[in-house]
């Protein structure tokens, strides 16, 4: 789902940067308040896991493949602000160390997958937790992936409308919403199911190991 550099117009990434910058600052404050130096290595472990998860290609029916995101797992363990910041760093590392994703696409990727993905996971998890906790994890993670994919599809589909040459031809990503919505959303329905199952398994494992904060375990 990562958008590479060169497909997102400055008309998109500059406003996205303006929105993301104060949110990163705020997330940094929350990070300092909630996560001490002592927890930094553990957070790094889960950030690295998110990094690996987003590099692991999941085979999909029909021979296609896609990658997981991992932000749901970070959210369930560290909360949405820390997950947003950690996932931004994962995206930055992927861009600077692996050359995957992109620098100009970073604010868009961070907002769509990091911020919206994390908060959707968190709110749905808290909402559904009283019903059944495993269901809450699966539903929160899978819906958040679909919501993030929807946002990425909307941003990509917006490019030919806002970044045109004088003759009307596109200067960046050339396809509109009629192409981006099905092309991105349909594979991510499968990815959402696979990743939510994987997240549930890791989350249960983390609960058995007593790594989770009390608010994420369902204990009252």
């Amino acid at each position: 789902m990562h958008i590479p550099d060169g497909l997102i117009s400055p008309q998109t990434y500059f406003p996205a940067l303006l929105v993301a910058a104060p949110l990163w600052w705020w997330a940094g404050r929350e990070f300092s308040r909630r996560v001490g130096d002592e927890a930094l290595p553990r957070l790094a472990v889960f950030a690295a896991l998110a990094f690996v998860l987003s590099s692991l290609m999941l085979p999909l029916p029909g021979g296609t493949s896609g990658h997981a995101i991992g932000v749901g797992l970070l959210t369930l363990i560290f909360g949405p602000w820390v997950a947003f910041l950690a996932y931004t760093l994962v995206l930055l590392l992927q861009a600077l160390v692996m050359g995957a994703g992109g620098i100009t696409a970073l604010p868009v990727n961070a907002l769509a997958m990091g911020l919206v993905g994390a908060w959707t996971t968190w709110l749905l998890f808290r909402l559904l937790r009283p019903l059944q906790i495993d269901l809450a994890v699966v539903a929160a993670v899978s819906i958040s992936i679909v919501v993030s994919a929807l946002l990425v599809a909307l941003v990509l589909g917006l490019q030919p409308l806002i970044a045109q040459a004088p003759d009307g031809s596109p200067r960046f990503f050339p396809f509109g919403w009629s192409v981006t919505l099905p092309a991105i959303l349909i594979p991510h329905l499968f990815i959402a199911l696979a990743e939510s199952a994987l997240t549930l398994m890791i989350w249960r494992h983390a609960r058995r190991r007593h790594w989770l904060p009390v608010e994420s375990t369902g204990s009252t």
């Binding site: 472990v45 085979p59 890791i202």
Partner: peptide
Amino acid sequence: LRQRYRRSAAIGLAALDKGVHNAEMVT
């Protein structure tokens, strides 16, 4: 396909245990 998914799951859990242990050592 099933084996590949199971393999991913096993890797995830093993990596997590090893990673957390390593992080504790780092701390």
